[in-house]
Write a protein that binds this DNA or RNA. Structure first.
Lengths: 342, 342
DNA sequence: ATGAAAGCGCTAACAA
DNA sequence: TTGTTAGCGCTTTCAT
């Protein structure tokens, strides 16, 4: 069952069938109709491999992510896939699991399948792997960090804005002891978030002791460990910002395990605004960065290497994990003589 | 840069290069070494499309899921992919978004890419689509529901066990008014869960009024609506079981919005045990069904059509969203004269 | 053990 | 507008 079968059934040449399938305008509508009918009747499905082989176009786009289990990535993938399908492409997903060897496998697979572009949405990539991609002239797109090579574009995320808003928000509430649970250092976007935090804090004249910066790993476990560390300090922070929502969720868990209530005893802010955050109890205040936007930008960038992708913004979404610091409340209580506020 | 280039560089024929790549044992080790060196030096990558075209084997397995945004599915995909890579296959993911048209597109894509098997991990599939797959002799695997055709296998999930345990657990705590927020009716696995609930409840001689059965849709929103409905009843339930964890999470949210505390005022049990459930506040009591197990089973079933896949079990994981019903507590309080228990 | 050559199913250049 | 035909890069007989 191939294109010849259809050609024969419709009484035309294979070239005509090919033209019909590819919607080449020059074909006689009557003939086209006949061909479509044969296709329908025979249940013919063109063989993508053959098409790709001869045309040199795989119609395949790769995305490399680190951990499909972090809800941020499915959202991103969904956005990527939606956009890709929209422009007639398919998506090859590679999940590295933060493992270098798997990353290598991913790249190899992408190469073998002759993808027409790959979006690297993970902690950097080894130089040699990158070169292999680059040497095949495959367009690439990165988040934040962009090795300066042609064919490589970067989606810049304005971490500053959202993080600045968050720090302001905390400062206005009266917090002076702000901590930060960061992501893995090798992950550029994590480093950028930490930097943004540092500069935002600087700006309002606050000093953050190094012990208030905990190096996590963007997992719930990292968040838990971060809180354990922070709580063990002689003077714990009154507010914690996290490098991503998964970390914040882990933090909530550890905080609650420690018998602390959020936001009464301690304020918490996440980053990403994954869908589940809104449904945490209490709903998580976080900084929104749209995975879908990033993904859509990525697809566009891969297909049109000439126009640089537009930046992605971040912004604070205030929900219910932030309030005035415990001390303030205690003072208020004493002053007003009420046993319980609220 | 193709197989000929390598052949030339190594001073052998293309056939030999092909044999080396495919590890055909008959090749002279010395020659093989030379070929590998050339491959290395040239950075040659075999073209999958060409290989697939000539060999008729795409080394591609498809998974169709309904909603990549529901954390259960990424976990499943991860399991599928891990297993697939292990046996030398790649994964083509199709997300239908509960949309029939997208389901059709998915099937079409799978057909075009000549997948060697597809796992349908979503609410059924339209008969004609199934026939298209079947007519190409593509092995399929389903969860629960198995259209009786050859080449189609089924992974049976023992919903009974876990749900039975859950109902028992609730009954032992003293709950008599059990409600259920189900999933979409067209989704067979959802219907099976509801049935298991009904039979488990029957077994302990409880009667569940129809108003206690809310038809949700496996999303957080569905869970919220379910709770809204249940709370509006003149005699609301004291415990709610949900057809999946996302529903339970939505329910937690709505309950908390209504000012009810979990599990003091109402007990809640989910289904799936997605990773985030453990991190909810309070941690969600739920019924575990391993997506990874299902996925691994699915891959095995697709590659070996003769051996039927083994069943997947479910089991209750007690965390902190269940306790004695509010009434009981109130009685206890009165009797003991304490203002607050705990 | 190795090589020569015939396609796999399709597209695209060229001819008619 | 339609048809003929030469490959795309590879695997796999069939010879050697």
């Amino acid at each position: 069952m191939d294109i010849r079968t259809v050609a024969h059934a419709a009484g035309v040449s294979v070239a005509t069938v090919s033209r019909v399938i590819n919607k080449v305008p020059s074909v006689d509508p009557a003939l086209a109709k006949k061909v479509w009918e044969s296709i329908q009747k025979l249940g013919y499905v063109p063989n993508t491999q053959a098409r790709a082989l001869v045309s040199g176009r795989s119609k395949l786009l790769g995305v490399i992510i680190s951990d499909i289990t972090n809800p941020f990535f499915p959202e991103l993938i969904q956005g990527f896939e939606d956009k890709a399908v929209e422009v007639g492409y398919e998506t090859l997903i590679g999940s590295t699991n933060y493992d270098l060897q798997r990353m290598e496998q991913c790249v190899q697979r992408m190469l073998e399948r002759k993808v027409e572009g790959v979006a690297v949405m993970t902690f950097g990539i080894e130089e040699p792997l990158l070169d292999r991609l680059a040497s095949q002239g495959i367009p690439m797109v990165f988040i934040d960090l962009a090795p300066k090579k042609k064919g490589i574009s970067t989606i810049r995320v304005d971490y500053q804005k959202g993080i600045h808003e968050a720090v302001q928000h905390l400062a206005v509430l009266g917090h002076r002891r702000l901590a930060f649970i960061s992501g893995p250092d090798r992950l550029h976007s994590a480093v950028a978030r930490l930097q943004a935090f540092r500069s935002a804090v600087d700006e309002i004249g606050l000093r953050v002791p190094e012990s208030y910066i905990f190096h996590g790993d963007h997992t719930v476990e990292g968040g838990e460990r971060g809180v354990d560390h922070l709580l063990a300090l002689s003077k714990p922070p009154t507010a914690i910002m996290c490098s991503n929502d998964m970390t914040a969720i882990g933090a909530m868990h550890a905080l609650s395990r420690a018998g602390l209530s959020i936001p009464k005893d301690i304020s918490l802010i996440g980053f990403d605004d994954i869908r589940i955050s809104e449904y945490m109890l209490p709903p998580l205040t976080t900084i929104r960065m749209s995975g879908r936007d990033i993904a859509a930008s990525a697809v566009t960038a891969l297909l049109d290497t000439s126009t640089p992708p537009r930046d992605v913004e971040t912004k604070l979404v205030v929900r219910q994990t932030t309030s005035v610091p415990a001390g303030t409340l205690a003072d208020l209580r004493k002053k007003s003589g009420k046993a319980r506020s609220r």
